[in-house]
Amino acid sequence: MTLAAALAFPITLFFVGLVGVVLRRNLIVILMSMELMLNAAGLALVVFHAMDPSPAPVSLVLLLLGLAAAEVAIGLALAINLVRLEGSPDVDLARILRG
């Protein structure tokens, strides 16, 4: 297996998440797909680290964990607000930029 073949899996996983963001309308499922994309990027960094060990990829994956935690907290708060306003987490219902 070449390095390119090992990288093909995280890249494909990233695009699966992107299809989810494009195809779904439920804000919570869109957030799950975004988590999938973020973690596919992290897995690609770990593949590079496995081939050539260095401090950069593992530190970036740890920073990514914190970033994803902040992102999912705000995203779920937005989803709860959307359900409270419109009765459904459908992103097409979000038309106004205030709570």
Binding site: T2, L3, A5, M51, P53, P55, V58, S59
Partner: peptide, 18 residues
């Protein structure tokens, strides 16, 4: 296109330096 092999092992120094 290099052959892929796992050269990494757990090293706390990576996390400290990074």
């Amino acid at each position: 296109q290099r052959p892929f092999s796992v050269n990494a092992s757990f090293d706390p120094a990576f996390y400290r330096m990074g």
